[in-house]
Amino acid sequence: MNDAFAQIAALNARYARCIDDGALADWPSFFAEDCLYKVTTAENYKDSLEAGIIYADSRAMLVDRVSALAEANIYERHAYRHILGSPFIVEDGDGVARAETSFLVVRIMRDGTTDLFASGRYVDVVRFGADGPVLAERVVVCDSSRIDTLLALPL
């Protein structure tokens, strides 16, 4: 088992735990300062349509999203449970790797309704530095083009 695989798998496990435990303030710290985080659909991705449901080209924009969710936006209380597959290492280069990881996200509403909210894959560029791996890019490619009600918490 190579190092990139183990490091990205560990990064993903921490990432999912962070969101699912509600520690959203820590979520931006998984990303590089000049990152790209985008949520899109498989159809847009296949057709090279660049817009995102969420589109952030800096870690500071992710900080703003967390602040907005906490302070400004109104939505019914809910939580996610991420189930992640093993990362597939597409390319392992000099201090940078490209990887893809499947995800399922279950959404639990305040009344207990539990639904499969999203499935898809993370298409990542991971940078390995002195402080461990960070996400230089995470493009969240949802298999379906349909979002139920709204997307508040990040995927």
Partner: peptide, 16 residues
Amino acid sequence: HKQSNLVGPAGYVSME
């Protein structure tokens, strides 16, 4: 692309 964060299913001024 950046301003599209305002709109859509995750939009700052439209998710509600």
